[in-house]
């Protein structure tokens, strides 16, 4: 196999792992924001205890 193959594969795999990290960060953040919004919509915000 040519050297180009090893170089290209290194860069492709690195890009995939880093993109995976970025995607995971976005998805996880969205899940938590939605869950928090749902809880607050049901009136479970901490402040609701006062009223």
């Amino acid at each position: 196999m040519s050297h180009t193959f090893f170089i290209a594969l290194s860069y492709i795999l690195t890009a995939l792992v880093v993109l995976g990290l970025i995607l995971r960060a976005f998805i996880d953040h969205r899940i938590q924001v939605r869950a928090l919004a749902e809880l607050e919509a049901r009136g479970i915000g901490r402040r609701s205890r006062r009223g």
């Binding site: 938590q32 924001v33 928090l36 809880l39 479970i44 915000g45 901490r46």
Partner: peptide
């Protein structure tokens, strides 16, 4: 955020 969700749940 995850911890807030946990506390509120």
């Amino acid at each position: 955020l995850r911890r807030r969700v946990r506390t509120l749940t």
